[in-house]
Design a binder for these strands. Structure first.
Lengths: 146, 146
DNA sequence: AGAAATTTGTCCGTATGTATC
DNA sequence: AGATACATACGGACAAATTTC
């Protein structure tokens, strides 16, 4: 029987398990990850699910994949690199006079605010806030609720 | 006989076709894309392949997807034209609790604030504020901390 | 407010193409 | 050339969010 949980997607759980294994040395840097078949057996998941999990790790820089060979654990996980930036918060705010003036809209107009930080060697180097006018799609819920 | 070509994966071809449709207005900004079912019929591809294609577009910022609703074309494709950004103001501010927390410093610490706007086709597309800690030299004499 | 229909999200199992060893 | 492993693609099933009735 397949496993129909939903709270946390299987591929994310598996990605997390693998990430932890890399972090604590279970999979040494530079070593090949277990083969797809091995992971399929171990996690009782389909290949597609395993591949999705590995895709997450690849995206996040934990592993590198080579066609026909396998996926290697990277020696330098995301941290300690030159400068990593990550979004820490996204929300909607209303334009203060300052922002309203810059955008040329009315004060109180809803804006998208994205806050990201850039880290280098563990320390926060800069905080960047980017404001954008809402997309048309997102505007739906902001005006004229029925 | 599934799995015909390889030179260009199906999902990439489909993603390209959809992207072009958004670019030339076939799918207006803010409008919903055809449903996954409709696209499977149109491109004669499996749903997974369609989802892969849409995933590419989402990754690239062309579309946004909402569970139970659909995927709609974004009004801000990745740089529709020459986007110029210019710094409009630079000043020093004191860290509010929010910024202080992100930087890991005390509230009231002096920060450098740089505000820049990005324009495209005359309109202000985004306002970006970057905060940075002052250099150690500049710190002296700015606040009362000893 | 509740049920049904729609639509996207997740997962499975399988088959086949392509690259590497 | 064969074995191994990743990449692509198909089809089906059920879960969850949204909309519609």
């Amino acid at each position: 029987m397949p496993t129909p949980h939903y709270g946390q997607p299987r591929y994310r759980v598996i990605a997390d398990a693998l990430r932890e294994r890399i972090e604590n040395g279970g999979i040494p840097a530079g070593a090949l990850l277990p083969t797809e078949s091995a992971l399929t057996a171990e996690f009782r998941a389909a290949r597609g699910t395993i591949r999705q999990a590995i895709g997450i790790l690849r995206e996040a820089g934990w592993v590198s994949t080579e066609h026909g060979r396998g996926s290697y654990a990277n020696p330098r996980p995301p941290e300690g690199g030159p400068a990593e930036s990550s979004v820490v918060r996204q929300r909607q705010i209303t334009a203060d006079p300052d922002l309203a003036d810059l955008f040329g809209v009315a004060v109180g107009t809803t804006l998208d605010e994205s806050t990201s930080i850039t880290r280098a060697e563990g320390a926060v180097r800069s905080v960047t806030r980017t404001y954008q006018l809402l997309s048309a799609a997102a505007q739906r819920g902001t005006i004229g609720g029925d």
